[in-house]
Amino acid sequence: MAQQWLDEQQQRTWRAWLTVSELVPRVLDAQLQRDAGLTHAAYVVLAMLSEAPGRSRRMSDLARRANQSQSRLSHTVARLEERGWVRRERAADDGRGNLAVLTDSGWDVVRSVAPGHVEAVRSAMFDPLTDEQTRALREALETVLDRLDPDHSLRVEHGDAVHDEG
């Protein structure tokens, strides 16, 4: 069977995707570093906690939602604890799991940083697109997601929060 290479359109699309998937996080990291001395990964942790009931999540759930390994999340949370923005607690329901809890100071950080972050997302991703292009991009990405995760077991559904990650 002969190797089937990407055609010209597929190759250009693939390379554009690779570049965008590298540059958008870099732009968002720069904005968050400038505005709050935060990495994008740390902001995602704060945002995921801010959206949770009681502003707390089990560490395992938080790792999945923040798309971080347990080890990386532990380091991220430790840095956020040092700043007084997150604290860890034992889970009250079973005493076995650990929770990450967003402190009042952490909540203040999310509220102050979210508007600039949303503007950076809008500027990087949506300002260059028409409404039709945005809809087409969403539909295309959802189609790829359905191929990669047909039973929705690998992805985390995100709400429509102001500081939600796109």
Score class of each variant (00 low, 15 high):
Leu49Lys: 14
Asn67Trp: 12
Met125Arg: 14
Val45Arg: 03
Ser50Gln: 00
Ala136Gln: 15
Asp104Gln: 13
His163Ser: 06
Ser50Asn: 01
Glu165Gln: 14
Ala100Pro: 05
Asp164Gly: 13
Gly166Gln: 15
Ala16Asp: 09
Leu32Asn: 02
Arg12Trp: 10
Asp131Ile: 04
Gln31Gly: 01
Arg64Pro: 00
Arg55Ile: 10
Val44Asn: 06
Glu139Lys: 09
Thr13Lys: 01
Val144Gln: 12
Glu81Gln: 00
Ala140Leu: 01
Asp94Lys: 15
Leu73Thr: 02
Arg88Asn: 10
Leu137Cys: 04
Pro150Met: 14
Leu46Cys: 01
Gln68Ser: 11
Asp108Lys: 11
His163Ile: 09
Thr130Met: 09
Val86His: 00
Asp160Gly: 10
Asp127Phe: 13
Leu23Glu: 13
Ala52Arg: 04
Glu8Ile: 10
Ala120Glu: 01
Leu73Asp: 06
Gly116Lys: 06
Gln11Tyr: 05
Met59His: 01
Asp151Met: 08
His158Val: 15
Arg88Asp: 07
Ala120Cys: 02
Val118Trp: 13
Gln70Gly: 06
Val24Ile: 15
Gly95Val: 05
Val24Tyr: 09
Ala120Pro: 02
Arg122Lys: 08
Glu132Lys: 01
Arg55Met: 08
Gly54Leu: 04
Ala140Asn: 00
Met125Glu: 11
Val156Lys: 03
Ser69Met: 01
Met1Ile: 11
Asn98Arg: 11
Glu165Pro: 10
Glu89Trp: 12
Arg83Gly: 05
Trp5Gln: 14
Asp108Asn: 09
Val20Ile: 15
Tyr43Gly: 03
Ser56Val: 05
Leu148Glu: 14
Gln31Ser: 03
Ala114Trp: 00
Glu22Lys: 04
Ser71Ile: 03
His158Tyr: 05
Asp7Cys: 00
Asp93Gln: 08
Trp107Val: 14
Trp5Ala: 13
Ala42Thr: 07
Ala120Phe: 01
Val27Phe: 04
Leu6Cys: 07
Leu145Asp: 08
Tyr43Asp: 02
Ala66Asp: 03
His158Asp: 09
Gln10Phe: 00
Glu165Gly: 11
Gln4Met: 13
Asp61Met: 04
Pro53Asn: 07
His117Cys: 03
Glu142Lys: 06
Gly95Leu: 04
Glu22Gly: 14
Leu62Lys: 04
Arg79Lys: 13
Trp107Asp: 15
Val162Leu: 11
Glu119Asp: 08
His163Pro: 02
Gln4Ile: 11
Val156Thr: 15
Ala41Gly: 05
Asp164Ser: 14
Pro128Tyr: 03
Arg65Ala: 10
Asp35Lys: 03
Asp35Ser: 11
Ala42Gln: 14
Val113His: 03
Asp127Tyr: 08
Arg88Thr: 06
Trp5Ile: 07
Arg138Thr: 03
Ser105Arg: 13
Gly166Phe: 13
Arg96Glu: 06
Asp151Cys: 07
Pro128Trp: 05
Ser71Val: 06
Leu23Cys: 03
Leu99Thr: 00
Ala36Met: 03
Arg15Tyr: 03
Leu23Arg: 12
Thr134Ser: 12
Leu137His: 08
Leu102Arg: 08
Thr13Ala: 13
Leu102Val: 07
Thr13Val: 09
Val118Ser: 04
Glu142Ser: 11
Leu80Lys: 02
Arg83Ser: 04
Ala2Ile: 12
Asp104Ser: 15
Asp108Val: 11
Phe126Asp: 11
Ser21Asn: 13
Leu129Pro: 02
Trp14His: 09
Leu145Pro: 00
Ala124Leu: 00
Glu142Val: 09
